[in-house]
Computed example of a mutant assay.
Amino acid sequence: MERVPFIAIEGPIGVGKTSLAKAISAYFSFELLKEIVDENPFLGKFYTNKEEWSFQTEMFFLCNRYKQLEDLKQHRQPAVADYHIFKSLIFARRTLKTDEFEKFSKIYDILTADMPQPNVIIYLHASLETLLKRIEIRGRAFEKNMQETYLQKLSADYGRFMSRFEAEHPNIPVLKFDCDTLDFIRHEHDLKSMLQEIALTLQKGVHTHGTS
């Protein structure tokens, strides 16, 4: 049976996940699952006081990711998401207290037990300098309080997690793009080469509906 394409894009804050997801959605005519960020009522408070607001922040994100993926499961359309739900654990492990993380993990396991799983992962990574520049350019007010050390540790968390993910899921292709050398937002040729690599990966084992 041919698998319905489902691409998930991951990487640290500011690396360009949403921009690439929009480009992929337009190019392949895939449904776009876009993470709700600005609507999270706890996020601004989180960046000023992580200890106080981290659990509420992570639960809001987890529930919204769950709802989007539940909707996707109902109609099985080719889709691209600017997140993988596993990011909930990456952030929660970094921000929650031990007892809070244990509670969060139990809820995560219940919600994701029968989730639709991406069959292609795109991992975007970049240096701290590049991430900070891109965060500054997009100008989200609540991100002005983000500490550089938090972003640096989060990037390292992603690197470790992706290495473990590849080892545990050898049948799911992971495409890695270095966003220090690739600027697909400003340079059309960078985006084109990335889309071509994604198309080749899809053609190897996932049925697509063609490109626009």
Rank of each mutant, 00 (worst) to 15 (best):
R3I: 13
R3A: 15
V4M: 11
P5T: 07
A8R: 00
E10Y: 02
P12M: 06
V15L: 14
V15T: 14
A21K: 05
Y27I: 04
F28T: 07
F30S: 07
K34V: 15
E39S: 14
N40E: 07
P41V: 03
K45Y: 09
F46V: 05
W53P: 00
Q56P: 00
T57M: 03
D71V: 02
L72K: 00
K73N: 08
H75M: 02
Q77C: 05
A79K: 01
A79M: 00
V80L: 03
A81Y: 08
L89Q: 05
L89D: 01
A92P: 00
R94P: 00
R94F: 01
T95H: 03
L96M: 01
D99Q: 00
E102Y: 08
K103M: 05
F104I: 03
F104A: 05
K106M: 09
A113C: 07
M115H: 05
Q117L: 09
Q117N: 03
N119T: 03
I122W: 01
Y123G: 07
L124P: 10
L128F: 09
L128C: 01
L128V: 04
L132P: 02
K133Y: 08
K133S: 13
I135L: 14
E143C: 10
N145L: 06
E148D: 14
T149I: 14
L151Y: 12
S155C: 10
S155V: 06
S155E: 11
S155A: 15
D157K: 02
R164D: 15
N171F: 14
N171V: 10
P173V: 10
L175N: 08
C179V: 14
D180I: 11
L182K: 15
F184Y: 15
H189T: 14
D190M: 11
D190S: 13
D190R: 07
L195W: 11
L195Q: 09
E197Y: 01
I198R: 02
L200D: 10
T201S: 07
G205K: 09
G205E: 13
V206G: 03
H207M: 10
T211C: 01
